[in-house]
């Protein structure tokens, strides 16, 4: 469904990604793991059009989408939920959800989707008229995911959805991610919480300073001694 071919990207002169090759198949959950600055977020930015790669190509369902404007890539069915939640703080919960439905505004009334969304996120339904900025961190993350779902994405990319959240909420978020996937949405997940990410994922790629150093089945990676040592830490 998604294919990155030899992607290299730079921030000015700083090499963020070198020759990344990556594939996501329809219906999968794929995790991108690695330390801070390894290039996980940059990879998502290249896919969603925020960062133009210097070399290589991105294909989505056999269409070349390299270098397209982000809003055009959204039209193709890829939704990128950026790091740090980034909901619109001065918009209400409902308005945040409404703007999420921008992609499908011509075919669907955004209100018709709310019930379905609130099934995933019951906590949000009590807060419809509240400003996004007044929500707790966990609720904001839920809103960010909910806003992304409003667009009916085929591929949902989440950047560190667990960042800065309490363990119980992290568990909830991962449960929701699994549920979204089980209803047919393909997921590309960037995480620092490697334990969790490997548990939900089918496959994973591990990045180090802009290069893919390991890839494979999530289960195999989780039991790989080298990977364990480097990424799963002492908690395992």
């Amino acid at each position: 469904m998604l294919k990155l071919h030899d992607i290299s990207a730079f921030y000015g002169n700083i090499n963020a990604l070198s020759k990344i090759n990556l594939k996501v198949k329809k219906g999968e959950i794929v995790s991108l793991l690695g330390a801070n600055g390894a290039g996980k977020s940059s990879t998502l930015k290249v896919i969603s059009g925020l960062l133009e790669p210097r070399e290589g190509d991105v294909f989505f369902r056999d269409n070349k989408i390299t270098g397209m404007e982000p809003e055009i890539i959204v039209d193709h069915g890829i939704i990128h939920i950026p790091e740090g939640r980034q909901i619109f703080p001065a918009l209400t919960v409902e308005e945040n959800l409404k703007i999420g439905a921008y992609r499908i505004r011509k075919s669907t009334d955004w209100r018709d989707k709310l019930d379905n969304i609130f099934e995933y996120f019951p906590a949000l339904s009590d807060r419809r008229q509240q400003k996004g900025g007044t929500l707790s961190g966990g609720e904001q993350q839920m809103l960010a995911i909910a806003r992304g779902l409003m667009a009916e994405p085929e591929l949902l990319m989440l950047d560190e959805p667990s960042l800065g959240l309490a363990p119980l909420i992290v568990k909830d978020i991962f449960k929701i991610i699994k549920k979204i996937n089980s209803e047919g949405v393909t997921i590309l997940l960037v995480e620092q919480n490697a334990n969790m990410a490997l548990k939900v994922a089918n496959r994973a790629y591990i990045l180090e300073t802009g290069e893919i150093v390991h890839s494979g089945n999530a289960k195999d990676l989780a039991s790989d001694e080298k990977v364990k040592e480097a990424y799963l830490g002492s908690t395992h």
Binding site: S48, G49, L50, E69, P70, E71, V74, D75, I79, H80, I81, P82, Q86, F88, P89, A90, L91, E95, K98, I99, G100, A101, Y102, R103, R105, W110, R147, A151
Partner: peptide, 24 residues
């Protein structure tokens, strides 16, 4: 209107508005 919410979203954070498909 949807376009009005798009205007306010762009005003608050144009990068994220783009990620929601808004032609900023």
């Amino acid at each position: 209107t949807m376009f009005g919410v798009a205007i306010r979203a762009t005003a608050q954070n144009d990068k994220v508005a783009k990620l929601m498909g808004v032609p900023t």
